[in-house]
């Protein structure tokens, strides 16, 4: 019996999306990053193009509450200063992108005004040269009030505006069109809704090369299997030629992984799980690696050590040893 390589012929490759615009393209980023382009499943170099994943580090525009100690240690010196926080991520930890979360927009909490939020965005844009993801607070009314101003503040920078949902996509889509940004299509762990949002976005004029997909995820031990399968299915659909699911995918890793008890609890509270470091950091890195295996293109991460580990793993994943 002779062995033949079981090569799949995929019908399409994943759409390429460029995040960030340099001066040449009307922005101020030091470099733009193009994601997507996968022509096969992750890491199957024998079969086709497999682009390297991008790591975005998350920056909050105000001091986070209730963060576990390992994260506090990493970031407490830059709390409340998103520009400094972003700078630290890029300069010290080598973040490819910054994911700025405008948590201070939350109308039930700080309720920062659209203009204040726009200032946060501008400050971060000035502080770092990498491309940005800008995330609203999740309150539809507030986000829709804020987007026109915040998006305008980053006009031309090709940031990812996050996020458009099935019941709230029109304002953010209009802002992205007006200010030349990319839209994050968010759906609640449902491949059909994900596709529906893509169709709705394209119906209002957002082009495929300006859409990134995001399935609400879950951390390791907390629903990661749903996300894993949905990401796999989405990627298979995209490679199978479904235009509405062929966009690159983003996974939120940090906040999901650190929500899980196994990452959050210190050793005193769970001695049977051993020391919180490296446990919690491994939890985040393992969550990231699982998503990478399902096809994620952008990871949004928290802990610098987890970022380092994932980089190291990625390096190994793109290295050929004896092959096959």
């Amino acid at each position: 019996m002779s062995f033949e390589m079981p090569v799949e012929n995929w019908r399409a490759s994943i759409t390429q999306v460029t995040i960030g615009a340099t001066e040449q393209d009307g922005g101020t980023r030091e470099r733009a990053i193009t994601i997507g382009g996968a022509a096969t499943l992750p890491f199957l170099a024998f079969e086709g193009e497999t682009p390297r994943p991008i790591i975005a580090m998350e920056v909050l525009d105000e001091q986070p509450e209730g963060w576990p100690e390992p994260l506090v240690e990493a970031f407490s010196d830059v709390y409340g200063d998103p520009a400094a926080w972003a700078q630290k991520c890029v300069e010290e930890y080598g973040a490819d992108m910054i994911c700025l979360r405008l948590v201070s927009a939350d109308p039930d909490e700080t309720n920062a005004s659209p203009d204040e939020l726009a200032e946060h965005v501008k400050a971060v844009l000035e502080a770092v040269g990498v491309p940005l993801i800008i995330w609203g607070c999740g309150n539809y009314d507030k986000d829709n009030e804020m987007w026109p101003i915040v998006s305008q503040a980053a006009a031309g920078e090709r940031v990812i505006l996050a996020s458009a949902e099935e019941d709230n996509y029109k304002t953010i889509a209009a802002c992205a069109l007006a200010d030349k940004h990319v839209v994050l299509n968010e759906s609640p762990l449902d491949i059909n809704i994900q596709k529906q949002v893509s169709i709705l976005l394209s119906d209002v004029g957002v082009k495929p090369e300006n859409i990134v997909l995001y399935e609400v995820t879950g951390g390791l031990g907390y629903g990661i299997e749903y996300a894993f399968s949905i990401l796999e299915r989405t990627r298979l659909a995209g490679l199978g030629g479904d235009k509405m699911l062929s966009a690159p995918m983003l996974s939120v890793v940090g906040s999901e992984a650190w929500k899980v008890k196994e990452a959050r609890l210190p050793e005193e509270e769970a001695p049977e799980w051993g020391p919180q470091v490296p446990r919690s950091i491994l939890w985040e890195a393992a969550t990231a690696l699982t998503f990478l295996n399902a096809g994620t293109d952008i990871l949004v991460m928290w802990h610098p050590e987890a970022v380092k580990l994932v980089r190291q793993a990625t390096e190994d994943l793109f290295t050929s040893g004896n092959g096959f």
Binding site: F3, E4, P6, F46, G321, N322
Partner: peptide, 27 residues
């Protein structure tokens, strides 16, 4: 198959699974 890197592992494992399921390659 003694993979040397994580990249080898993913590829080998995938090829073996496909060979078994899609090609019914007994070995």
């Amino acid at each position: 198959g003694q993979p040397k890197t994580m990249g080898d592992t993913v590829q080998q494992q995938t090829i073996i699974r496909r060979a078994a399921l899609n090609q019914k390659f007994k070995p």
